[in-house]
Design a protein around this nucleic acid. Structure first.
Lengths: 107, 107
DNA sequence: CTAATATGCAACCGGTAGGTTGCCTATGTC
DNA sequence: GACATAGGCAACCTACCGGTTGCATATTAG
């Protein structure tokens, strides 16, 4: 049942936190980073960061690969692309409304 | 201090709930809807829906206009467009990485 | 005026999100 | 082997979220 895992709401919720957005930003550079590397510069404890990473992982935004004694996290862009399309759909519907409104005003 | 109000995290968080996404969907048709209208068909109590609407309003996704005894809610697409751009930026960075990787593999 | 409708306000409740701390394990280094 | 480093696990705490209920207020209908 992966259906629920990556529901749009789940993905949005995962991105709905400044700390997590910062993690995504760091990882969007493409280089896999370890937990301690991701913790550096970020006031919070390593455990807190780990929890945030698990949330991102649960939404499918990120995945980890254990390498020796450290586990590297890497971005997984599919869910992000997915909700982008979701937003596109909403905006599109809205644009159609604007279009109709504009047409109405002009006639 | 409207700066914090519509921070990307705030907007994502507002969309990070199935009920709220459903409300946005209903409102994306363009027609302003009253609270009772938005509650119809939605198991939850009117008060619950009201709270969700206030969250969306806090993120700037929606605004209400009092009209007689009912308050109509309407979609406000700006924050959605804004986070769409945000996601575009992340995807773009990622695409650049893929591009570099592709180039590396091909050479 | 009275009744019905639409909403607001506030208290209350259970669950969980976010964070810390302490300790244990595994891996790498000297 | 001894030590340092990277991470996992679990308990614990506070605050907030999502939801309900009860009651008060404003508007509209008859």
């Amino acid at each position: 049942m992966t259906g629920k895992r990556r529901s749009p709401a789940r993905v949005f919720a995962a991105l709905g936190d400044a700390t997590r957005l910062a993690l995504v930003k760091k990882l969007s550079r493409g280089q896999p980073l370890s937990i301690t590397q991701l913790t550096e510069g970020c006031k919070l404890s390593r455990q807190a960061i780990t929890k945030h990473l698990r949330v991102l992982e649960g939404a499918g935004i990120v995945h980890s690969v254990r390498e020796g004694r450290e586990s590297r996290f890497e971005l997984d862009p599919e869910p992000i692309v997915s909700i982008r399309k979701y937003l596109d759909h909403v905006s599109e519907q809205w644009d159609q409304v604007l279009g109709r409104l504009k047409a109405f005003v002009e006639n």
